[in-house]
Nucleic acid binder design. Structure first.
Length: 494
RNA sequence: GGCAUCAUGGCCGAGUGGCUAGGCAGAGGUCUGCAAAACCUUCUACAGCGGUUCGAAUCCGCUUGAUGCCUCCA
């Protein structure tokens, strides 16, 4: 029996604005699409939060025993800085700036994205398609939408006719907007427009002569509109209708609204059962943003080389910090909050590691089975990782009590406790126990410190406290902290 | 301006119509040669004003404030 048959998962659906019981279209298998990055600059922590939120979702599905096809695209063309009217492609802009090929820009930041995701111990998706690799599929969809009567050609560009679409469909159902309101509240158009209505969006754009990213099409040499790639690639790899589509909250409108319109116009059916939106990571109370510069990069976090944080933090600590908030809540990134999470994280890891030293009893005074189900209940309730983490801390407290002997546990229960903690800490949350990373160098260091600890303890036994304190204090100065416990002295770095 | 969302204790953050969230910090204690660490115990709450209800921080309305989207961003 698969785990998912025992656990009832509920997911908040942005489309219905409710938590719904989750049932995949095909039993035991899930198709999930998540909007990936536009690769014209380094991903910042805000971008990472979204991808880590969906990494949690992916990991939990897998943990439950589902077969998951997780598609996350790389946008390497077609994403204009405004509305597909007169804007620049940020990739082209960057290429001009750095005097390199657009595809060199794409390559550079795709690699950065991948190494960053690895640092956060995020699993790679099952398929990671690129927009430029699916031009033919995108052209096909444009053709279909034109033949269905929901798009028009103007000067070699093709636009989606939102007003026409809205006559038979509901444009705005995802983001809770009404087309009439949008038309009423339209801002003044700055330039002459090829569009019938400002709400229309580009499916295909004719390239200006200097625009070097271009592909032939029936309408012009040009490039696809931004919203189109996700429709093309999700349809190709997941079908006309699939289980989950995710992305950042900021993509809800217009991007995801347009995706729905494109899919309904070309396939005559709503493409996605459950829409999930991860909320923003803010800095100084404002959304992290590439364009305004209000952001912090993963490397700046890990190296400590930044003006925002007082010290360097491991990637996994930042991940733990983010999972202490639910993915649908806005989370503010601050030194104070991160430091608080870091202490808790190490405490949790320490207690997990100490499970091995617990001696077991005939009887358990702690109900491991119901605690374990409480952990699942937390995740089953729309991936509520903060509640899950609260339960893990509760286990941590119990572990200490087992060691003290104030509570007891059987061998069988202890094994279940250990397995459950391991499953959630490492498989589901995808955390990394940084204190376990020891190479050859550190084992040499370890030997040296062990010797100093021994010398210090001898001095203490001889009541030669000036020597013992000197060892302790001078090690402290170089960043080695000695900790005297009941079972001897241990140490921690920095 | 339009449409949304949110407002919880010193800080970060869950949750809920009546029952302890959790973490960090603070306070007290255990341990210790001292200190640190570790562990135990513990205080402070639900923006304001009305309403519904036996009962609301939780539901409804208004006010105030913040944020997001409406133009590129996860």
């Amino acid at each position: 029996m698969k785990l998912y048959e025992q656990q009832e998962l509920h997911i908040y659906n942005s489309l219905s604005k409710k938590k719904e019981k989750f049932t995949p279209i095909h039993e035991g298998a899930i198709g999930m699409y998540v909007c990936g990055p536009t690769v014209y600059s380094n991903v910042h922590m805000g971008n990472c939060r979204t991808f880590l939120s969906f990494d949690l979702v992916f990991r939990y599905f897998k943990h439950l025993g589902y077969k998951v096809r997780y598609v996350r695209n790389i946008t390497d063309a077609g994403h204009l800085e405004n509305d597909g009217e007169s804007g620049d492609d940020p990739i082209l802009k960057k290429a001009r700036l750095e005097r390199i090929e657009p595809m060199e820009v794409v390559q550079k930041y795709t690699v950065d994205f991948h190494t960053t995701m690895e640092k956060f111990n995020a699993l790679p998706p099952s398929i990671e398609p690129t927009a430029t690799g699916h031009i033919i599929e995108q052209i096909d969809i444009v053709k279909t939408i034109i033949s269905e009567g929901f798009a028009y050609v103007k000067n070699g560009s093709v636009y989606f006719d939102v007003v026409k679409f809205n006559e038979a469909h509901d444009y705005g159902k995802l983001s809770g907007r009404k087309l009439e309101d949008m038309i009423t509240n339209t801002r003044e158009l700055a330039a002459q427009s090829e569009k019938k209505n400002p709400q229309d969006f580009a499916l295909w754009k004719k390239a200006e002569p200097q625009h070097i990213m271009r592909w032939p099409s029936p309408w012009s040499d040009g490039f696809p509109g931004w919203h189109l790639e996700c429709t093309a690639m999700s349809t190709k790899y997941l079908g006309h209708q699939f289980d989950i589509h995710g992305g950042g909250m900021d993509l809800k409108f217009p991007h995801h609204e347009c995706e729905i319109a494109q899919a309904e116009a070309s396939n005559k059916q709503s493409p996605v059962n459950v829409w999930m939106h991860a909320n923003m990571l803010t800095l100084n109370g404002k959304k992290m943003s590439k364009s305004t510069g209000n952001n912090i990069l993963p490397n700046e976090l890990i190296s400590g080389n930044n003006d925002i944080l007082s010290k360097a933090y491991p990637a996994t600590v930042a991940k733990f910090f983010m999972f202490q908030a639910q993915y649908r809540s806005i989370l503010d990134f601050s030194d104070e909050a991160l430091a608080a999470s870091e202490k808790g994280f190490y405490r949790l890891m320490d207690s997990f590691r100490s499970i091995d030293s617990i001696s077991t009893s005939e009887k358990s005074s702690f109900d491991v089975t119901s605690w374990r189900q409480a952990c699942y209940n937390a995740m089953n309730d729309d991936f509520n990782s903060p509640i899950l983490i609260a339960h893990l801390f509760e286990a941590s407290k119990q572990i200490n009590a087992f060691k003290e002997g104030t509570e007891s546990i059987t061998e069988e229960d202890l094994k279940l406790l250990q397995k459950t903690m391991h499953d959630f800490l490492f498989d589901v949350l995808g955390l990394v126990d940084t204190t376990h990373e020891t190479g050859d160098d550190s084992s040499k260091l370890n030997g040296a410190i062990e010797l100093l600890i021994e010398l210090r303890n001898q001095a203490r036994a001889n009541k030669d406290f000036s020597t013992s304190d000197r060892i302790r204090d001078e090690l402290q100065e170089v960043g080695i902290h000695l900790k005297d416990g009941k079972e001897g002295t241990t140490y921690s770095l920095n």
